[in-house]
Design a protein around this nucleic acid. Structure first.
Lengths: 196, 196
DNA sequence: GCCGGAGGTTAGCGAGCGCTAACAAGACGT
DNA sequence: ACGTCTTGTTAGCGCTCGCTAACCTCCGGC
C-alpha cells in the first residue's frame, strides 16, 4: 500500500534487475555468509561484473538491508492476515503454522540469511528488522495463547521462538519431498505447541 | 582417551590459555560471525594483543576448526552414552532431549557458532565435523524410532533436525529463567516427537 | 539526427585483515 | 651465572575487498 505496489517477495521469473540481484545475493549469503561473499561474486551470479551493482544499490549493506526488511515485512503482513481471520483458535494456529512452513520451504535461502546475518546489518536497518520481527512474534503469541490455555506471555514467547527454530531448521535437512516435509513440520509444530 | 585426557569441554574457570581463547572467540564469533571478528579482537578479549594468538593456534581457521570439532565430539559422545543406557524407550528419548537442552542452555554461543559458520571451516575440518554430526543424528534417529512407532528413517531424520532447530533456538530467546526454559523446551520437543 | 539517461565496462584507491619477523622479558633447570 | 623455552610485544608485508572514477554504448523522444 505504501511504497512498492504489490510486494510479491521477489519470486524469480519476470523480476526486474534489483529483484534478480537480491535473490542471487540471498543464495550466496546463505551459503557463505555476508562477509564471505564479494561484490564481484554477486555480480557474476547475475551475469554482470562487479561494480555494475552500484547502478542498482547504494552499497552492499543496502542489499542486505532491503533483503531482510522485505522478508520481515512479508512475514508480518501474512501473519497478521491469518491472525485476523476469525474462526476456531486451533484452526487459526494451524493456518499460521502452515503459512510459516510454506515460506520456509519456498525460500530456504532467505530463512538462512535472516537467521545468520542480522548482526551484519547497519544500525538503522537492524532496528527496523528487529521491530518487525517483534511484532511478528507478538502475532504468534496472541494466536498461541488463544489456542493453548494456561500459557503466560513469557512462556508463549519462548514457545513461538522454539517453533520458529523448528520450522526454520528445514534448510538443513531436505531429504523428504516437499509435501511430506511440510506435513511433518506442521504435525511437529502443532504437537509441540499443544504440549506446552 | 586418545589425545586430551578428560575433555570437559572448556568450562571457563581454571582453563589453560588455549581454552580461554576458544571461549572468548566463540562468544565473538557468535555475535559478529567468523569474518566479522578480527585477530586483534580475539586477542583483546583475553587481554593479550593480536598476533600473540599464534603462540597457541596455527591460524584463525584452526581456532574455528578446533572449536567445532570439540563441540561435535562432545555431543556425539554424550548422545551415545545416553542412547546405550537401556531402559524404557520413552525415558531414553527424554534423557537425550534433556542432554541436548542442557548443552544448548549452558553453551549458547557454541550453538550459534556451530549453526552459523560451518561454511567458514577449512575443507578437512568441515568434513570431520559433518561426519560427527551425521553420527549424532543417527543416534537420535535410532532413539526416536524406538520410542515413536511407525516412522521411517527419512521422517525420523527430518524430525531429529527439526528438534535440533527447536532446542537450538534458545540463544535467540532468553526471557525465561533457565530451569523454566529447560522444562518448556523439553515439553515442546517431546510433544513434537510424539506427534510425529 | 542529435542528445541525454540508463546500465554496463575496466582501472585503481584506500582501508582492513591475516599472518610473519624480529625482538624482549621472566621462569627455570643445571 | 647462564642459556633456553615460553609467551608476550610492535612493525609491517601482501592481499583482498568495498567502492569510486572515467569512459563506452545502446535507445527512445523531440
Amino acid at each position: 500500500m505504501s511504497s512498492t505496489p504489490t510486494t510479491p517477495l521477489v519470486s524469480g521469473e519476470k523480476a526486474g534487475r534489483r529483484e534478480q540481484i537480491l535473490t542471487a545475493a540471498a543464495e550466496l549469503f546463505a551459503q557463505h555468509g555476508f562477509h564471505g561473499v564479494g561484490i564481484d561474486d554477486i555480480g557474476a551470479a547475475v551475469g554482470i561484473s562487479g561494480p555494475a551493482l552500484y547502478r542498482h544499490f547504494r552499497s552492499k549493506d543496502a542489499m542486505l538491508g532491503e533483503m531482510l526488511t522485505s522478508i520481515s515485512r512479508y512475514l508480518l503482513d501474512g501473519g497478521e492476515a491469518h491472525a485476523e481471520r476469525d474462526g476456531d483458535a486451533d484452526e487459526v494456529l494451524a493456518a499460521l503454522v502452515r503459512f510459516h512452513v510454506d515460506f520456509a520451504l519456498t525460500h530456504p535461502a532467505l530463512i538462512t540469511v535472516q537467521e545468520r546475518s542480522l548482526a551484519n546489518l547497519a544500525d538503522t536497518d537492524r532496528r527496523q528488522v528487529r521491530a518487525l520481527q517483534r511484532r511478528y512474534v507478538e502475532v504468534w503469541v496472541r494466536v498461541i495463547r488463544a489456542a493453548v490455555p494456561g500459557l503466560d506471555q513469557a512462556h508463549a514467547r519462548s514457545a513461538a521462538h522454539a517453533v520458529f527454530g523448528l520450522i526454520n531448521s528445514t534448510p538443513h535437512s531436505r531429504h523428504l519431498p516437499d509435501d511430506q516435509q511440510a506435513a511433518l513440520l506442521e504435525r511437529l509444530a502443532l504437537g509441540a505447541l499443544h504440549a506446552a
